[in-house]
Design a protein around this nucleic acid. Structure first.
Length: 296
RNA sequence: GGUACCAUAGCUCAGUUGGUAGAGCAACGGACUGAAAAUCCGUGUGUCCCUGGUUCGAUUCCAGGUGGUACCA
């Protein structure tokens, strides 16, 4: 499995299609937003012509109304690999969703799916009684995790409480962080380029999205704005504009800024992974040579 | 050409009764186990326009220069 990672807008799609042609391999997307069929322009989902007839998986296979998460992604990719490795020696997984890539490469602990009712209750508690009250609850339920968790991060604290209440056990006992063995080899390729050049690409790509009709796409999705799938760069900023809070120009500027910030977060995550071999996105031939060398 | 005002961080600006400076935004760094394009934490990055003068000491006061803005010719 050739895993291609890197910041948004750097050219993962183009490289993956090159590799796919060379290795006669299908492409699996590791993108937590391109998986939604309603989000196309704002997520830079590759078009039919861009895909050049190469089979792509996990793009547009879910609806924004569906619940989806990193565990389901891991399961989806694993069952895909079982099918696809029968006919292909090499597969390509490409995408910038850090946690999805991690869930696939290393596995993720088996945890229950949170009951939506419980999530809602805790959300209400958070809003009415504040983070402090959820923290107190966590301290009682799981003093070990209470010491480890980022107590200022509501999502982390709430989720830990959710897990304790769902299982009746301390969350810290459920977190075993095993490195799951995979019945195939994983080769990780990272793409990087000079910061200024990357930001230029990101800014230009946002302008292209606007020309391609992102505003109309966002307007159609506006009624669904409170869904998690729409808490997404490119949409949430336009929703603010539709609400009359900011001008269109300001919204576009914010989309660019938030995309840049996202790319920085991705780099911060991926740079920590010592298994990644880094390349410049123009060096397609070099990557192919490198992968061939690894496969032999 | 004359007069007035301005010149401080990437940007918009505070400020220092003379002891080399701080806000917002931008930027930068980091964390991350079923919401992850989410969520959270941390950091001031500076020839205070230039050259002289006064002073123990000038970004601050004075003179000249340069650039900008406004008004008058």
């Amino acid at each position: 499995m050739v895993v291609i990672v890197g910041p948004t807008g750097i050219g993962k799609t183009a490289l993956s299609i090159h590799l796919a042609r060379h290795f006669q391999s299908p492409v699996i997307s590791a993108d937590s937003r391109q998986i939604y069929k309603e989000l196309r322009i704002g997520t830079a989902t590759p078009s039919e012509s861009e895909m050049e007839g190469i089979a792509h998986y996990l793009i547009g296979t879910k609806s924004i109304l569906d619940y989806y998460n990193a565990y389901e992604f891991e399961q989806d990719v694993l069952s895909l690999t079982q099918k696809l490795f029968v006919q292909h020696k090499t597969l390509i997984l490409t995408g910038g969703s850090m946690m999805y890539v991690d869930a696939f490469c290393n596995g993720i602990d088996l945890l229950p799916t949170v009951d939506p009712k419980l999530r809602l209750e805790l959300q209400e508690q958070l809003e009415t009684e504040g983070l402090q009250s959820i923290r107190r609850q966590l301290k009682l339920l799981d003093p070990v995790f209470y010491e480890q968790v980022d107590l200022k991060n509501p999502k982390r604290v709430v989720h830990a409480v959710e897990m304790c209440l769902m299982t009746g056990r301390p969350y810290s006992q459920l977190r075993t962080s095993p490195k799951h063995k995979r019945p195939f080899r994983i080769i990780k390729i990272g793409l990087e380029m000079e910061r200024a050049a990357l930001y230029q690409r990101i800014n230009d790509r946002v302008d292209e999205m606007i020309s391609a009709g992102l505003i109309d796409e966002a307007r159609e999705l506006y009624p669904y704005r409170h869904l998690n799938a729409l808490n997404t760069v490119g949409y949430k900023e336009l929703f603010q504009h539709f609400d009359g809070l900011i001008s269109l120009d300001k919204a576009i500027e914010l989309i660019k800024r938030d995309s840049r910030r996202y790319s920085k977060k991705q780099l911060s995550w991926f740079k920590r992974d010592e298994e990644i071999y880094w390349f410049s996105p123009e060096n397609t031939e070099e990557v192919i040579k490198f992968v061939r060398g690894k496969i032999k």
